[in-house]
C-alpha cells in the first residue's frame, strides 16, 4: 500500500510537469516576441527534465520495468494524475502566463516542502527542481504584474484569465488518501499546509497587478486522482504521444 501510494504521488508530480511542459512547448516558435519564445521553451525544458526524474523514480518504485518514457508515452488519459489546471489550453499569452504563475506559486512551495522528505530520493529531486521553480515563479509573477498593470487591453485579458483559471486552484490543496499516506510516512506535506503561503503570495502579486481574485472558491477536481480529467487532456495526448503510438518503440 505504501509503495503504491508513493507511485501515485510521484505520478502526480511527474504528470504535472509533463503536461504543463508539453503545453508550454506548444508556444515554441509562435510566441509574441523572441525573448518570450526562448523563455517559454526554457521553462518547458526544465519541466520536462523534472518529469524524467519524477517518472523515472515512479517506474523504479512500481517495479514493473516501466521507464519514464513508457509512463509518459504509453498511458492513456485515465492513468494521468496531473492537476486539471495544467491541462487547460494555452489560450492567449496572458492566459498561459496566468496558468504558469498559479502553478509555480504552488509548485515552488511543494518542492520546498519535499526537500525535507523522509524519502532521500524524493528530497534529492526536489532540491534540484526547486532551484528551477524559483526562477519560474519570479518570471511568471513579474509577467502577470506587467500585463495586469499594463494597458486596458492587457489588464482585461489578465482579469479574464484569472476568472477562468481560479476554479482550478482549489484542487492543488485537496488532501485525499494518497496525500494522507504520504503525510503519515513523512514523504510529502499535507497539501493544506501549503495554502497560506500560496494565498499570501498570490494576493500580493494580484494586488500589484491590479487584478481581483474571484470570491467564489468553487473548485473543479478529478485530475490528480484521475477520476475525471477535462476533455482537453485527451486531445493533448493525441499530439504528444502520436509518434510512440504510431511507431511503437521508435527511437533515434
Amino acid at each position: 500500500m505504501h509503495d503504491n501510494a508513493t507511485f501515485e504521488f510521484l505520478c502526480r508530480m511527474g504528470d504535472n510537469t509533463l503536461v504543463l511542459g508539453h503545453r508550454v512547448s506548444e508556444w515554441c516558435g509562435v510566441s509574441p516576441v523572441l525573448e518570450e519564445d526562448i523563455a517559454l521553451a526554457n521553462t518547458a525544458l526544465d519541466l520536462i527534465g523534472q518529469t524524467q526524474m519524477w517518472l523515472g523514480l515512479a517506474g523504479d518504485i512500481e517495479g514493473k520495468g516501466r521507464s519514464a518514457d513508457d509512463l509518459a508515452m504509453l498511458r492513456d488519459v485515465w492513468d494521468f494524475r496531473n492537476l486539471l489546471l495544467v491541462e487547460q489550453p494555452n489560450g492567449d499569452f496572458g492566459q498561459t502566463l496566468m496558468r504558469q504563475f498559479l502553478f509555480d506559486a504552488w509548485h515552488v512551495r511543494m518542492l520546498q516542502a519535499l526537500t525535507g522528505s523522509s524519502d532521500k530520493r524524493i528530497a534529492e529531486i526536489a532540491a534540484k527542481a526547486v532551484k528551477e521553480a524559483s526562477y519560474h515563479v519570479e518570471r511568471s509573477g513579474d509577467t502577470v504584474i506587467g500585463l495586469g498593470d499594463g494597458t486596458a487591453e492587457s489588464h482585461g485579458r489578465m482579469q479574464a484569465a484569472l476568472d477562468l483559471l481560479w476554479p482550478y486552484v482549489g484542487e492543488m490543496f485537496i488532501c485525499d488518501d494518497v496525500d494522507e499516506a504520504m503525510k503519515s510516512a513523512g514523504i510529502a506535506p499535507d497539501p493544506n499546509d501549503l495554502r497560506a503561503g500560496f494565498d499570501s503570495h498570490v494576493t500580493q502579486v494580484m494586488t500589484d497587478a491590479t487584478l481581483l481574485i474571484p470570491e467564489d472558491d468553487f473548485a473543479h477536481k478529478g485530475g490528480k486522482n484521475g477520476h475525471r480529467h477535462s476533455e482537453h487532456l485527451g486531445h493533448m495526448l493525441t499530439q504528444m504521444q502520436w509518434l510512440q503510438r504510431a511507431y511503437p518503440g521508435a527511437s533515434w
Partner: peptide, 13 residues
C-alpha cells in the same frame, strides 16, 4: 535585464 532566460537554460539575457 531583458529576460531571465537566454540562449541556453543556464543563461539570462
Amino acid at each position: 535585464r531583458i529576460s531571465q532566460f537566454g540562449s541556453t537554460p543556464c543563461k539570462a539575457h
